[in-house]
Design a protein around this nucleic acid. Sequence first.
DNA 1: GCGACAG
DNA 2: ATCTTGTCGC
Length: 213
Amino acid sequence: MESSRLLNKFLEKLQIAISRNLNLSSYLDISKLEKILAVDSAYKNSELMVTVGVLWSLKIKDIIEESYVVSKPTYEYIPGLLFIREAPSIIEVVEKISGGWDLLIVDGHGVLHPRRAGLAVIAGFILDKPTLGIAKKLLVGEEAGGGDMGPVYLDGKVLGFWFKDKRKFYVSPGYKIGVEEIPEIIKLMGGRYPEPLEIADRLARKKVNEINY
DNA sequence: GCGACAG
DNA sequence: ATCTTGTCGC
Ligand SMILES: [Mg+2]
């Protein structure tokens, strides 16, 4: 596994180009939001990587379908360039899901990113689907407000929201979703850290641990 | 120059 | 993200 300075620089330019004309207008009918597709990855020994997709129904609060892909990490983790590590297998697991869905949620940031092009932005852009980035820690930006929810500012603009569940988590638009829609969407998902994302995390870890060779 | 730094 | 034992609590 490697990364070259030239390639890193190129990937950053790619992010800038993508975010320059990013479509963040609403393509999501929140009143009809029902099926969520959550994706997450787990690793082992920098040899193995498992990415899982969990198709979740808000109505029945249960899993409808699962998919996964096993691979080998091809790029080291660099803060700000997570997408080159995880986006390729995310695209694969999403395409393996046969059922339809309304919203993709990704474990990582959307526009709450130094170049407004986090993993959720890249994934949504490639798939051309409404996508939200949901992260457990802030990469950039400043939290404001108090209580159990508040905005996150970057360069004087609200680019995301923080929420308090058992832990804090941060939500920002990935693609075809406006930042102002986020509080309502999170409320629809129970006002908590999204269950399907928790399940995808657990499933990926389980899978990566039962594979050995 | 130094520190911070999604997963 | 992963490594990693015991320990606190329902
Ligand atoms: Mg993850």
